[in-house]
Amino acid sequence: MSLDRSDVEKIAHLARLAISEEDIPGYTHNLSNILDLVAQMDAVDTSGVEPMAHPLDATQRLRADEVSETNQREAFQKIAPATEASLYLVPQVIE
């Protein structure tokens, strides 16, 4: 499976990753190699096999509906890159 430059650019955009121009050939090469490795999966016929999402065959435990968390805004916003008026700031969002 060989990716080209535009594939890599598309994926980088989907994953919101800035990749510099000069790094694109390197990523294109390595990602293609990884996909070649992954393509070995095709050797096995998996028709009729149930996909396994989880190692343990367990079901979801349910939590009682109780408020157990207290306000920790100060502690949480101390580690935030940009806040004002207790809000997290981001470049303007246009709807």
């Binding site: 890599v8 919101r16 990523y27 990884i34 981001v90 470049p91």
Partner: peptide, 20 residues
Amino acid sequence: LYKRSRGEGFGAEVKRRIMI
């Protein structure tokens, strides 16, 4: 904001795996 923060914050191997 997203692209550069993530582009600068992650190293090459992490970026590769995210993209794969």
